[in-house]
Amino acid sequence: MSDVTIKGLTISLGMGAAQKKILNEVGFSVASGESFGLVGESGSGKSTILRCFARLLTFWSGEISIAGRPVDQIPAAEYCRLVQMVFQDPYGSLHPRQSIKTALQEPLRIHRLDRQQERMEKALIDVGLNGSFLSRYPHELSGGQRQRVAIARALILEPSVLLLDEPTSALDVSVQAEVLNLLNEIRRTRKLTYLFVSHDLAVIDYMCERLAVMQSGSIVEIMNRTELCKGGAKHPYARQLIDSSIEYDRVA
């Protein structure tokens, strides 16, 4: 089981006088195997929620728990095999001087897993690439291929929760659709729980059962896909966001 609960998550970043509350009492819960979307304007704190969850930021207050266990009490080694993240920018998330093999082998070495070659090849095949990519370097791959490698790297430790921070926003339209389909496929076969950040409502609509609309560090509305499609948003900001994306769609 890997249901996720976040309660009263609050964090301030910055030093001294410049310190600013980035997240204010954020709370939601995601059922095991569900895909939960986070939308909101740029700077509303979507990535920050994921970074707190990923324990890349540590000085938050509130409660984050997986299957009823508070995350700060889970040992680091176990946590890596429970939660992984895919980053926004495929050009920045792979080490430019490391081959794909090194990138995929690192987590296996750290956790002393067996059958490394087999696992690496399987991870690549699962994301629609093949074993011949192992010897390549990130600059020899396209953006979509890089993002696939990043997904493979996140999945190689077989986590049950995957944090996705705008995994397709740096990609071309057709590639974007491919990667989204891949992610849906993976979620279905592995029964993963997704926390999916995007500023693109269409992507969220395609990927998530439920979503939260964020504005300047707080969640203004949580709704499910049917409500989104029927235009059932209650909060004015959420409405505005949905309307504007529909309008854009008509114009385009």
Binding site: D89, Y91, G92, P96, R97, S99, R136, Y137, P138, H139, E140, G143, S169, A170, L171, D172, V173, Q176, A177, D200, L201, A202, D205, L228, C229, K230, G231, I242, S245, I246, Y248, D249, A252
Partner: peptide, 23 residues
């Protein structure tokens, strides 16, 4: 009513680092 794609609005972030070796 469905919300269709808003694809194609993002600008591609281009390759920044071109490593000086691949072996």
């Amino acid at each position: 009513m469905t919300i269709k794609s808003l694809y194609g609005t993002e600008n591609m972030s281009n390759a920044r680092v071109s490593p000086w070796f691949s072996g």
